Simulated assay, not measured.
Amino acid sequence: MCLSTEVARLENPDIRAAFQSGLDWMERFVMKPHPHLGRKGAVCPFVHPAHEGKRLYFCAIDCREMCFELFLEVMMAVPALFGRIAEQLTTRRDLLSLCIFPINLPVANYYKFVDCAHSILKPIYMVAGLMIGEFHPLSTATGAHSEGIRPLRADVPFFAARSMAVHDKLFIDRASGSVGQRIHELECYLRWTRSSLSLEDIARCTARIDELKHQLIGDEDHADAAV
């Protein structure tokens, strides 16, 4: 593991190449505005301050001969690692970001080791107060504000974990998720951001959770009646 500002010093050529490719893409795309983003500012406002503030860490997992189950087991340990790093920081813990690069991952496995893994890991990371993003060259995910941008289409595959923030409401409670998943995400969001939310936002979030729970009960009753 190393800081994003120390990538050039790494001795392992495979890890250095993956980290440098990821960093180059971040500097070229993520840290800058985009005409199709749908809002002002950088594609991700977190990355540049984290990089410049020495709060952006990179680590690698060699997936050359790793099975999917073992990969998930390793990724499950990331929230604890994130917590240990955070404990060592005395300032700007809010900027801490950890990027995990699955090096030597065949292109044919991107869908499983990145996209599917993200679907499995996100609910677990959110319990720990973390958001996790998934990036790879074949990503088809569109932006939260515009379908004219592919913000997760990176030059190399990697995951990015950081502490949950108020604006993460954009990335949860989406129509594509199940009702149960959306309730879980909102409950985690409210737990970890409550101190930064206004009373009105807390009330809206609580009301939305109650609404979804009633919807879930209604769907279950409908399913029982159908049987």
Rank of each mutant, 00 (worst) to 15 (best):
L130N: 02
P151N: 04
L89F: 14
H222V: 07
L170C: 00
A203G: 12
L121S: 10
D210K: 15
C188Q: 05
A160S: 06
E200W: 14
R174H: 05
R39M: 06
R9S: 15
F159M: 06
C67H: 11
C116S: 14
N104Y: 10
G38N: 14
V7Y: 09
S178E: 10
E65Q: 14
R64P: 04
D201V: 11
E52F: 09
G129H: 09
E6M: 14
N109T: 08
H214C: 12
C99L: 01
K112A: 11
S146G: 01
V43G: 07
A50R: 05
A225K: 12
G133E: 05
V107M: 09
K213F: 08
I61V: 15
A80G: 10
G83I: 05
I85C: 08
E6V: 11
M26T: 12
D219Y: 10
C44E: 05
A60G: 05
W192G: 04
I209T: 01
P151K: 04
V7D: 01
L121I: 10
E134Y: 09
S196D: 15
A207W: 12
E187N: 01
L186N: 02
D168P: 00
A86G: 06
V43M: 06
D94N: 07
M66W: 02
E52K: 13
L199I: 08
T206R: 06
C44W: 04
C205T: 15
I202Y: 01
L186R: 00
G177V: 05
A42G: 09
D210L: 15
F135W: 04
H48W: 12
L190H: 13
R174T: 00
I202S: 00
T142L: 13
L105H: 05
L56A: 07
S139L: 06
R16G: 03
K122S: 11
L89Y: 13
C67V: 12
D168F: 02
L152A: 08
L121H: 10
M1P: 14
F135G: 03
E11A: 15
H167Y: 11
D219S: 09
P157V: 03
I103A: 05
I149A: 00
Y125F: 14
F159K: 01
F19P: 04
D62F: 06
F71W: 10
P157H: 04
L72K: 13
A17S: 15
V7T: 11
R162A: 02
I149F: 03
V107K: 08
A223Q: 13
V179K: 07
G148Y: 09
W192F: 15
C67G: 13
L152F: 11
W192S: 07
L121F: 11
H184N: 06
A80H: 10
I103K: 10
W192M: 06
A207N: 15
T140V: 12
P137Y: 02
M1W: 13
S97I: 02
V114I: 15
P151F: 04
R204F: 13
S195F: 12
L190F: 14
S119W: 10
F58I: 03
D62I: 00
A42V: 12
L186E: 02
P123K: 11
D221Q: 14
T90M: 07
Y57P: 01
F58V: 05
A17R: 14
E6S: 15
G218W: 08
A203N: 11
E187I: 02
E185A: 05
Q88N: 10
A108E: 14
C2N: 09
E52G: 03
V107T: 09
I183C: 01
P49S: 02
T140P: 03
